[in-house]
Amino acid sequence: MIRYIVKRLLMLIPVVLGVTFLVFTLLHFTPGDPAVNALGATSTEEARQAWREERGLNDPFFVQFANYCKEVFLHGNFGRSYSGNRSISDEIKSRLPISARLALLAILIDFLVGTPIGIISAVKRYSALDNILMLLALFMVSMPGFWIGLELSIIFALKLRLLPASGLYGPQYYILPVISIALGGVSAAARMTRSCMLDVIGSDYMVTARAKGVSEKIIILKHGLKNALIPIITQIGGAAAGMIGGAMITEIVFSIPGMGTYMTNAIQSRDYPVVLGCVVVLSFLACIILLITDLAYAFVDPRIRAQFGGGKKKSKKEDA
């Protein structure tokens, strides 16, 4: 197991380097002059030239890339933004926890609300309750999070005046954004759980458990759920990886000072080092989340644990 984790962590290096290279290249060849953006249209050519020289933008492409990688991966320094000339590392440090907190809360809700709904639906399949829940889930999963966000702020902030609609000055400010990020995931998790549970409910080991005299509740929650968890984990893990950066538009809707707003603003103002820095950090986090997802599989399913090798007393038993 430890060997597997180390292997996966080592694999992070080429992945993150690759992502960095791709985004770096794309931004490099994007039309438009960053110097004009940074200094304004009225600036002189000499000033622009000096600015470019100072930031190493006149160096050959590969030299620029190598220098960037050196700064980022060896010193953790993402450079300074074009507009405002602020440290990107500091900016990310203050914004990332906010986005991470949002994503984490949303994932928790996905899991804690979506999975039980799916289980209830599967156990009461084809009943009115099942139909209503699944119709709702289909409705929610089809709606983009930012739109739900807009609707929620109209209802709860504007009309009912119960919750704040923008900014981030206390716990209550998290409620609406988290709900609008989570709703899609809750529905997806519920639908996935339902179909997996239905698969599992029909299997022979459920009958074996029933024949042992185990109560229906324990059969579903102990014997069923653990078997159904793998695809649910896949789904929620994938959603989580996306959520870290994907809540961008929702963050803007609620004007939350997270990674999403930072990145969107940077894209609009062609602040390439900021975009690049955000993408590198987010891709790194996505890889970590996917690694955790894979480890969760092993935690749930002994067959996958066996495949990870790494293992205590496995090999000699298999040929017995």
Binding site: V207, T208, D301
Partner: peptide, 15 residues
Amino acid sequence: AMIFQDPMSALNPVY
């Protein structure tokens, strides 16, 4: 008690 037909699927794989 009952003994089932297909031993391959009668045991729960995760316990």
